[in-house]
Computed example of a mutant assay.
Amino acid sequence: MQIPIATYRIQFTPSFGFEQGKAIASYLAELGISNLYASPILTARKGSTHGYDTVNPNEINPELGGKEKFAELIAELKHLNIGWIQDIVPNHMAFDSQNHMLVDVLENGSDSQYRDFFDIDWHHHYPENQGKVLAPFLGKFCGDCLESGELQLQYEENGLTINYYSLKFPIRIESYSQVLTYDLGRIRDKLGRDHPDFMKLLSVLYMLKYIPSGEEGRERYDQIVIIKRMLWELWNDSPEVKKFIEENIRVFNGEPGKPESFNHLENLLNEQFFRLAYWKVGNEELNYRRFFTVN
């Protein structure tokens, strides 16, 4: 092990990655630097300027150059006899939709394969938080955000999400039935009961009735993949089914000025494994360990 004599810290960013670090390596050697002290290099939120907001601890950040450029930098440092000191953040990750482990927990709750990766109190003393992850990111109380139209249901290839500006929260698979069965007769009458697209939609709804949980975790994931794939195929291949889903989403998103129009979305939110809340309640009601008291 090389004992550091003189260190030089580099803050890697998307605009100063491994390639730029390699370019100054010989200069650092001339200065007498024995060790390069590197900022976090694991995948962080896109555009991160510090790297402490990790979203994937199993990957070298592609925005810094990825594994290939990292290997080239390390080879150059070894050639110059410069050691490496790594700044890491093993005790926290970013609460962000880019964090696929967290998204999995928000979507699957205690059935998530990553539930033990996070220190979550699933039996919190606040009844509203039991079985849920508190998400205190709203600029005002949840009801106010609902009625102002700031919370929006959206559908894309990865599934249904509740969006609050740039934040996306995944809808648990069991809740898809709420959206897909709303006014189901409309699409049945439009296509006909025996139409292949309607039959495929019914197949999705049937599968949604029997989602495995608990010890059947692997089967749960397999079934979720199948359901999402079938639904996405319908979305792309059947204009009528796509229109049906779009119209239902529009209904669920309500109309500002008509409080009762948000009842569907409120009921949907109440079913989730996360609880959206005003940011000011975080310190009092938080039910997971976090490093910074910043929402």
Rank of each mutant, 00 (worst) to 15 (best):
A6Q: 11
I10Y: 07
I10C: 10
Q11Y: 06
F16V: 10
F16A: 10
F18D: 06
E19C: 07
A23H: 06
L28K: 05
L28Q: 05
E30L: 12
S34L: 03
Y37K: 02
A38Y: 06
T43P: 00
G47W: 07
G47H: 09
S48D: 09
S48E: 05
T49H: 10
G51W: 02
Y52L: 00
D53I: 00
D53F: 00
V55E: 00
N56T: 00
N56C: 02
N58L: 13
E59C: 06
I60Y: 11
P62G: 06
L64V: 06
L64E: 07
G66L: 09
G66K: 04
K67F: 13
F70D: 06
L73P: 04
E76C: 11
K78Y: 12
L80H: 03
W84F: 14
V89T: 08
P90H: 01
M93N: 00
A94Q: 03
F95T: 03
Q98E: 15
H100D: 12
M101P: 00
V103K: 04
D104G: 04
V105M: 02
E107Q: 15
N108D: 11
R115I: 10
D116Q: 12
D116L: 11
F118L: 00
F118D: 00
H125Y: 12
Y126D: 13
E128D: 13
E128C: 00
E128N: 03
Q130W: 09
A135F: 07
L138C: 01
G139R: 11
C142Y: 05
C142H: 09
G143A: 06
D144G: 02
C145F: 04
L146T: 03
S148G: 10
L151M: 05
Q152T: 13
Y155H: 04
E156M: 08
G159F: 03
G159K: 05
T161S: 14
T161K: 13
I162H: 01
S166F: 08
L167N: 07
K168R: 13
P170E: 10
P170N: 08
E174F: 07
V179A: 09
T181A: 01
D183H: 14
R186N: 11
I187A: 03
R188K: 15
R193L: 13
D194C: 02
D194A: 13
P196N: 11
M199D: 11
L202C: 14
V204Q: 05
V204D: 09
L205M: 04
E216F: 13
E216P: 01
I224H: 06
I224S: 03
I224Q: 15
W232R: 05
W235Q: 15
D237Y: 08
K243D: 14
I249S: 04
I249K: 04
G254Y: 09
E255R: 14
E255K: 15
E255S: 09
G257I: 10
F262I: 09
H264Q: 10
N267G: 15
N267W: 12
N270W: 06
N270P: 01
Q272V: 04
Q272K: 04
Q272N: 09
F274K: 08
R275L: 15
R275S: 14
A277W: 01
W279I: 03
W279E: 07
K280R: 12
V281E: 14
E284Q: 12
E285D: 07
R289W: 07
R290C: 07
T293L: 08
N295D: 07
